[in-house]
């Protein structure tokens, strides 16, 4: 990958893609969300899409703050409703490329219904779901992605609920592009984001990210760097893997890669087809 280049000193090459008046951001040291945002900014630059026709919507939570740091038309909406909000934008103005950047609790728990329905309709949007296995902003509660037997503040004896497998959920709901990377796979993540940005339809990229403050502290996994080292040793790239096999347990092997890449008419394709049919009558 060619990094973004600018030669002026003291100006980060991504500064023009970010709201620099808001940096430093709120994320803790060792958190992977910042890395996901960097990869996203690099992916935006790499995809060479029209940034004025691109907008980003976030829900609430740690990852929900992303919209506030990216210099696009950006919306920070209510808990879980980012996809619903983005659906409105996309359908009202199909020329826009909408990106939903939010967390696992936001998108899969409270926004789970919107997630599966947007995937079913194949709304043209890119969903980047940062999965840190926990509700971090509220202090480390069980999320729908928390692996079995993992400790959290609301599961002091270990989580008793089986977690969602996000790629499988997206795949079975009808997403056209599904990938999973960790915060360590920055280049592949960047390439994946650039690729998905150009793909019409509902694309989902799951980014597994270390939560140094809650997930790893409650479970005694060290700091953010230790979690990154864990990803380094325990991830395996398997492109095209059946999404059924992508469950993540507590400190088990994580399979990453691009799992789904298919074609399906988007909601607006079908809608316009219906509309043009009506006009002929």
């Amino acid at each position: 990958m060619e990094p973004l280049r600018k030669t002026e000193k003291d100006i980060h090459p991504m500064d023009d893609l970010l709201r620099m008046d808001r940096i430093p951001h709120i994320w803790c040291p060792g958190c992977g969300i910042g890395t996901a945002v960097t990869a996203f900014a690099a992916g935006l630059a790499k995809a060479e899409i029209d940034l004025t026709k691109t907008c980003i919507v976030s829900g609430i939570g740690c990852t929900g703050r992303v919209a506030g740091y990216v210099k696009l038309d950006s919306f920070h909406t209510t808990h879980g409703r980012a996809i619903a909000f983005a659906t409105g934008i996309q359908v009202a103005n199909p020329d826009l490329k909408v990106i939903v950047f939010s967390g696992d609790g936001d998108l899969i728990s409270i926004g789970g219904n919107h997630f599966i329905h947007a995937a079913r309709r194949n709304i043209n949007m890119l969903v980047i779901c940062v999965n840190n296995f926990i509700y971090a902003m509220t202090g480390g509660q069980v999320a729908p992605t928390t692996p079995l037997a993992t400790y959290a503040t609301t599961s002091p004896f270990g989580c008793v609920e089986p977690p969602f497998n996000i790629p499988y959920l997206a795949d079975s709901s009808g997403a056209v592009y599904v990938a999973r990377w960790t915060a360590l796979h920055v280049r592949r993540l960047t390439n994946s984001i650039a690729e998905a940005l150009k793909k019409p339809g509902f694309s989902v990229i799951e980014v597994i990210s270390p939560c140094a403050m809650y997930y790893s502290r409650i479970n005694r996994l060290g700091d953010g760097l230790d979690m990154m080292k864990f990803y380094h040793d325990n991830t395996e790239i398997r492109h095209g893997e059946d999404t059924k096999n992508l469950d993540i347990g507590f400190q088990t092997k994580i399979i990453v890669g691009k799992f789904v890449d298919r074609e399906r008419p988007t909601y607006m394709d079908s809608y316009n087809k219906w509309l043009s049919g009506t006009k002929k009558d």
């Binding site: 919306f75 909406t77 409703r81 996809i83 619903a84 909000f85 409105g88 009202a92 919107h114």
Partner: peptide
């Protein structure tokens, strides 16, 4: 819930 969310989003497109 999503209906009104979509309406607010759509309103921002003009």
């Amino acid at each position: 819930i999503s209906a009104l969310a979509a309406v607010i989003g759509a309103s921002w497109t003009g």
